[in-house]
Design a protein around this nucleic acid. Structure first.
Length: 269
DNA sequence: CCCAAGACCTGGCGGC
DNA sequence: TGCCGCCAGGTCTTGG
């Protein structure tokens, strides 16, 4: 499902409905997600200070702690009303004093809802994460430095959250296309100049996707139910065998680290 | 330390 | 139609 743009779109969609609202209760219909759902009773009565994002995690920031929410592959968050019927995979509801309900629906259950006392960013799962791709500490020099002696394919390298967060399969394919780099190139054999182009490509791709409200594939919708429209701008993802949007050559598809990978054999070297 | 593969789940699709 | 195998936006864990 969601990569950084979809998570950020979700954050922006739910924030107006829950920031400043007080939690009045919650309902866990299915606790067995990626990890057992953690929602302590102490969150009841707490007012939401903010909805934050780190990597693909959302954080409901409360006075004494934070609720971490990850959407996994197939999850989405919607703000619904009390009369809204919970679907088959509506696993968790968090209810607020303004009558709204924040509902996590996730068919594959790779998502998670966890709690962290104090600063939500201190949760162990967030330790060791690389920089955000849309902040100043992420650039070509950083990628170059991190990649020395690494033999992993460049695509796997930029999808590694310890290197940089938020780059999932769709945007990894897209960013490599923009930067003109073949997905299988060893990370350690990519030049500094190429990394500068790649960092720019990642930043641009993600920025444009956020502006578009994310990419809609299958079932992703923003928290207001509106579809993102970045899919109309995809150059590679889902286009194996089709002509390159830039040169017309036939795009090649392969599997790299078990993930669908698409590139243009003429434009990417 | 580095890397590849397996694990966790359900649902949709194409092929026969 | 029905069944089977494969595929899907993620990421933690394990084993070499």
């Amino acid at each position: 499902m969601p990569e950084l743009p979809e998570v950020e779109t979700t954050r922006r969609g739910i924030a107006p409905h829950v920031v400043g609202a007080r939690i009045t209760g919650y309902r866990v219909r299915q606790s067995r997600l990626r990890w057992p759902v953690e929602l302590p009773a102490s969150i009841i009565g707490a007012r939401v200070d903010a909805v934050a994002r780190r990597a693909k995690y959302l954080g409901l920031v409360l006075p004494g702690g934070g609720v971490l929410i990850h959407l996994g592959m197939s999850g989405h968050l919607r703000v619904v009303g009390r009369d809204d019927i919970a679907g088959r995979h509506a696993h968790v509801d968090i209810e607020f004093d303004n009558g709204r309900i924040l509902r996590l629906t996730d068919p594959r259950r790779f998502g998670s809802i966890l709690y962290q006392v104090g600063d939500w960013l201190s949760h162990p799962l967030l330790a060791g994460l690389g920089p955000e791709p849309l902040t100043a500490d992420f650039d070509g020099d950083y990628l170059f430095a991190q990649s020395r002696r690494r033999r992993v394919p460049i695509k796997s390298f930029i999808m590694d959250a310890r290197v940089v967060v938020g780059v999932g399969n769709i945007y990894a394919n897209e960013a490599l296309f923009r930067a003109g780099l073949r997905p299988r190139r060893a990370a350690g054999r990519v030049s500094r100049a190429e990394y500068v182009a790649l960092a720019d490509a990642i930043r641009q791709t993600l920025t444009e996707a956020v502006a578009a409200g994310g990419t809609t594939l299958r079932d992703f919708l923003g928290s207001d139910g509106a579809a993102g429209y970045f899919s109309t701008q995809l150059s590679t993802y889902g286009r194996a065998g089709l002509p390159c949007t830039r040169c017309g050559a036939q795009l090649k598809g392969l599997r790299l680290a078990q993930r669908a990978t698409v590139y243009c054999p003429k434009c990417q070297r």
